[in-house]
Amino acid sequence: MHTVYIFLTGPMVWVSLLILVFGLIGKFIYLTSMAKKRDPWIFNYFQFKYAIKSILIWLVPFATMNMRRNPVMTVVTFVFHICLIIVPIFALAHVIMWEEAWGISWWTLPETVAVTMSFLVLGGILFFIIRRMKLPEARYVTRVQDYFILLIVALPFLTGLLAYYQIFNYQLMIILHVAAGHIMLIAIPFTWLSHLLLFPMLRGYVGSEFQGVRNVKDW
Protein backbone atom coordinates (compact mmCIF):
# COMPACT_ATOMS: atom_id res chain seq x y z
CA MET A 1 0.00 0.00 0.00
CA HIS A 2 2.84 2.31 0.97
CA THR A 3 4.70 1.79 -2.28
CA VAL A 4 1.59 2.10 -4.43
CA TYR A 5 0.50 5.30 -2.73
CA ILE A 6 3.97 6.83 -2.95
CA PHE A 7 4.21 5.91 -6.61
CA LEU A 8 0.77 7.29 -7.45
CA THR A 9 1.29 10.56 -5.60
CA GLY A 10 4.89 10.90 -6.75
CA PRO A 11 6.27 9.78 -10.12
CA MET A 12 2.81 9.06 -11.53
CA VAL A 13 1.84 12.71 -11.12
CA TRP A 14 4.65 13.59 -13.48
CA VAL A 15 3.54 10.94 -15.92
CA SER A 16 -0.09 12.11 -15.94
CA LEU A 17 0.70 15.79 -16.12
CA LEU A 18 3.22 15.26 -18.90
CA ILE A 19 0.76 13.14 -20.86
CA LEU A 20 -1.92 15.78 -20.31
CA VAL A 21 0.22 18.77 -21.22
CA PHE A 22 2.14 17.21 -24.07
CA GLY A 23 -0.98 15.43 -25.28
CA LEU A 24 -2.77 18.74 -25.57
CA ILE A 25 0.26 20.55 -27.00
CA GLY A 26 0.72 17.70 -29.46
CA LYS A 27 -2.92 17.87 -30.43
CA PHE A 28 -2.66 21.60 -30.91
CA ILE A 29 0.45 21.30 -33.08
CA TYR A 30 -1.00 18.38 -35.04
CA LEU A 31 -4.23 20.23 -35.79
CA THR A 32 -2.67 23.59 -36.60
CA SER A 33 0.05 22.15 -38.81
CA MET A 34 -2.50 19.99 -40.60
CA ALA A 35 -4.75 23.00 -41.08
CA LYS A 36 -1.80 25.04 -42.31
CA LYS A 37 -1.10 22.44 -44.94
CA ARG A 38 -4.63 21.78 -46.17
CA ASP A 39 -6.84 24.66 -45.01
CA PRO A 40 -4.36 27.56 -44.85
CA TRP A 41 -7.16 30.08 -45.28
CA ILE A 42 -8.20 29.41 -41.70
CA PHE A 43 -5.14 31.40 -40.64
CA ASN A 44 -5.77 34.11 -43.20
CA TYR A 45 -9.21 34.66 -41.77
CA PHE A 46 -8.22 34.25 -38.13
CA GLN A 47 -8.66 37.43 -36.13
CA PHE A 48 -7.75 37.52 -32.50
CA LYS A 49 -10.43 39.97 -31.40
CA TYR A 50 -13.24 37.93 -32.90
CA ALA A 51 -11.80 34.69 -31.55
CA ILE A 52 -11.60 36.12 -28.04
CA LYS A 53 -15.05 37.64 -28.30
CA SER A 54 -16.57 34.37 -29.39
CA ILE A 55 -14.82 32.41 -26.64
CA LEU A 56 -15.79 34.91 -23.94
CA ILE A 57 -19.42 35.14 -24.96
CA TRP A 58 -19.79 31.37 -24.91
CA LEU A 59 -18.26 31.35 -21.41
CA VAL A 60 -20.89 33.70 -19.99
CA PRO A 61 -24.04 31.99 -18.74
CA PHE A 62 -27.15 32.88 -20.75
CA ALA A 63 -25.18 35.09 -23.15
CA THR A 64 -26.15 33.05 -26.18
CA MET A 65 -29.53 32.30 -27.65
CA ASN A 66 -29.31 28.55 -27.18
CA MET A 67 -28.32 28.93 -23.52
CA ARG A 68 -31.43 30.98 -22.93
CA ARG A 69 -33.52 28.36 -24.68
CA ASN A 70 -32.23 25.64 -22.34
CA PRO A 71 -32.00 27.28 -18.92
CA VAL A 72 -31.75 24.07 -16.87
CA MET A 73 -29.01 22.66 -19.06
CA THR A 74 -27.18 25.99 -18.95
CA VAL A 75 -27.21 26.21 -15.17
CA VAL A 76 -26.18 22.58 -14.72
CA THR A 77 -23.43 22.85 -17.34
CA PHE A 78 -21.90 25.98 -15.89
CA VAL A 79 -22.08 24.82 -12.27
CA PHE A 80 -20.68 21.43 -13.27
CA HIS A 81 -17.74 22.84 -15.22
CA ILE A 82 -16.86 25.47 -12.64
CA CYS A 83 -16.84 22.91 -9.83
CA LEU A 84 -15.03 20.37 -11.96
CA ILE A 85 -12.15 22.77 -12.54
CA ILE A 86 -12.05 24.56 -9.17
CA VAL A 87 -12.23 21.61 -6.78
CA PRO A 88 -9.11 19.70 -7.89
CA ILE A 89 -7.04 22.88 -8.00
CA PHE A 90 -8.12 24.39 -4.69
CA ALA A 91 -8.97 21.39 -2.51
CA LEU A 92 -7.08 21.66 0.78
CA ALA A 93 -5.56 18.18 0.66
CA HIS A 94 -4.35 18.74 -2.91
CA VAL A 95 -2.72 22.06 -2.10
CA ILE A 96 -1.01 20.54 0.94
CA MET A 97 0.43 17.83 -1.26
CA TRP A 98 1.78 20.42 -3.69
CA GLU A 99 3.30 22.25 -0.75
CA GLU A 100 4.88 19.09 0.61
CA ALA A 101 6.28 18.24 -2.80
CA TRP A 102 7.36 21.60 -4.18
CA GLY A 103 6.92 24.05 -1.32
CA ILE A 104 4.40 26.07 -3.29
CA SER A 105 1.04 26.85 -1.88
CA TRP A 106 -2.04 28.82 -2.73
CA TRP A 107 -5.51 29.67 -1.51
CA THR A 108 -7.66 26.71 -0.57
CA LEU A 109 -11.34 25.99 -0.46
CA PRO A 110 -12.94 25.45 2.94
CA GLU A 111 -13.55 21.74 3.23
CA THR A 112 -17.32 22.05 3.40
CA VAL A 113 -17.35 24.11 0.20
CA ALA A 114 -15.09 21.62 -1.60
CA VAL A 115 -17.35 18.79 -0.49
CA THR A 116 -20.46 20.62 -1.67
CA MET A 117 -18.85 21.35 -5.01
CA SER A 118 -17.85 17.72 -5.42
CA PHE A 119 -21.44 16.71 -4.83
CA LEU A 120 -22.45 19.26 -7.46
CA VAL A 121 -20.07 17.65 -9.95
CA LEU A 122 -21.58 14.25 -9.25
CA GLY A 123 -25.05 15.77 -9.47
CA GLY A 124 -24.13 17.28 -12.83
CA ILE A 125 -22.91 13.95 -14.13
CA LEU A 126 -26.07 12.25 -12.88
CA PHE A 127 -28.08 14.90 -14.71
CA PHE A 128 -26.09 14.32 -17.91
CA ILE A 129 -26.55 10.58 -17.67
CA ILE A 130 -30.29 10.86 -17.09
CA ARG A 131 -30.57 13.45 -19.84
CA ARG A 132 -28.76 11.15 -22.25
CA MET A 133 -31.06 8.30 -21.35
CA LYS A 134 -34.32 10.24 -21.39
CA LEU A 135 -33.97 12.91 -24.07
CA PRO A 136 -34.53 11.19 -27.44
CA GLU A 137 -32.18 13.39 -29.46
CA ALA A 138 -29.41 12.88 -26.94
CA ARG A 139 -30.04 9.17 -26.50
CA TYR A 140 -30.01 8.64 -30.26
CA VAL A 141 -26.46 9.94 -30.63
CA THR A 142 -25.03 8.74 -27.32
CA ARG A 143 -22.38 6.08 -27.72
CA VAL A 144 -21.18 3.67 -25.05
CA GLN A 145 -17.96 5.64 -24.75
CA ASP A 146 -19.93 8.76 -23.84
CA TYR A 147 -21.17 7.11 -20.65
CA PHE A 148 -17.70 5.73 -20.11
CA ILE A 149 -16.18 9.21 -20.31
CA LEU A 150 -18.77 10.52 -17.85
CA LEU A 151 -17.78 7.68 -15.54
CA ILE A 152 -14.11 8.60 -15.88
CA VAL A 153 -14.97 12.13 -14.79
CA ALA A 154 -17.26 10.97 -11.99
CA LEU A 155 -14.89 8.50 -10.37
CA PRO A 156 -12.29 10.91 -8.95
CA PHE A 157 -15.06 12.88 -7.28
CA LEU A 158 -16.95 9.85 -6.06
CA THR A 159 -13.85 8.20 -4.59
CA GLY A 160 -12.71 11.58 -3.30
CA LEU A 161 -15.88 11.99 -1.30
CA LEU A 162 -15.79 8.41 -0.03
CA ALA A 163 -12.19 8.93 1.03
CA TYR A 164 -13.07 12.25 2.63
CA TYR A 165 -15.83 10.69 4.70
CA GLN A 166 -13.70 7.57 5.19
CA ILE A 167 -16.46 5.27 4.12
CA PHE A 168 -15.45 1.67 3.27
CA ASN A 169 -11.76 0.90 3.34
CA TYR A 170 -10.00 4.26 3.51
CA GLN A 171 -6.64 3.03 2.27
CA LEU A 172 -8.18 1.35 -0.75
CA MET A 173 -10.39 4.37 -1.41
CA ILE A 174 -7.56 6.87 -1.35
CA ILE A 175 -5.56 4.77 -3.80
CA LEU A 176 -8.61 4.46 -6.05
CA HIS A 177 -9.12 8.20 -5.78
CA VAL A 178 -5.60 9.04 -6.89
CA ALA A 179 -5.72 6.42 -9.63
CA ALA A 180 -9.07 7.72 -10.90
CA GLY A 181 -7.63 11.22 -11.01
CA HIS A 182 -4.75 9.99 -13.13
CA ILE A 183 -7.09 8.17 -15.47
CA MET A 184 -9.10 11.35 -15.98
CA LEU A 185 -6.04 13.49 -16.64
CA ILE A 186 -4.66 10.96 -19.11
CA ALA A 187 -8.04 10.55 -20.81
CA ILE A 188 -8.34 14.26 -21.56
CA PRO A 189 -6.14 14.42 -24.66
CA PHE A 190 -7.50 11.20 -26.12
CA THR A 191 -11.26 11.61 -25.73
CA TRP A 192 -13.77 14.39 -26.27
CA LEU A 193 -12.65 15.65 -22.89
CA SER A 194 -10.08 17.43 -25.06
CA HIS A 195 -12.75 20.05 -25.67
CA LEU A 196 -10.79 21.71 -22.89
CA LEU A 197 -8.44 22.69 -25.74
CA LEU A 198 -10.73 22.35 -28.72
CA PHE A 199 -13.43 24.62 -27.36
CA PRO A 200 -11.21 27.72 -27.63
CA MET A 201 -9.68 26.49 -30.89
CA LEU A 202 -12.97 25.82 -32.64
CA ARG A 203 -14.63 28.92 -31.24
CA GLY A 204 -11.66 30.96 -32.37
CA TYR A 205 -12.09 29.65 -35.87
CA VAL A 206 -15.87 29.95 -35.93
CA GLY A 207 -15.75 33.41 -34.33
CA SER A 208 -13.28 34.67 -36.91
CA GLU A 209 -15.21 33.07 -39.72
CA PHE A 210 -18.61 34.40 -38.70
CA GLN A 211 -17.80 37.81 -37.23
CA GLY A 212 -14.86 38.51 -39.50
CA VAL A 213 -15.82 37.07 -42.86
CA ARG A 214 -19.56 36.63 -42.65
CA ASN A 215 -20.20 39.83 -40.79
CA VAL A 216 -22.62 38.18 -38.39
CA LYS A 217 -22.49 37.13 -34.77
CA ASP A 218 -21.94 33.48 -33.95
CA TRP A 219 -24.05 33.08 -30.79
Partner: peptide, 12 residues
Protein backbone atom coordinates in the same frame (compact mmCIF):
# COMPACT_ATOMS: atom_id res chain seq x y z
CA UNK B 1 7.92 7.41 4.17
CA UNK B 2 11.55 6.97 5.05
CA UNK B 3 10.83 4.03 7.33
CA UNK B 4 8.24 2.59 4.93
CA UNK B 5 5.98 2.25 7.93
CA UNK B 6 3.09 4.13 9.41
CA UNK B 7 0.31 6.14 7.76
CA UNK B 8 1.04 8.57 4.92
CA UNK B 9 -2.33 9.35 3.32
CA UNK B 10 -4.46 12.18 4.76
CA UNK B 11 -7.24 10.11 6.24
CA UNK B 12 -4.93 7.55 7.78
Amino acid sequence: IQEKAGPIACGE
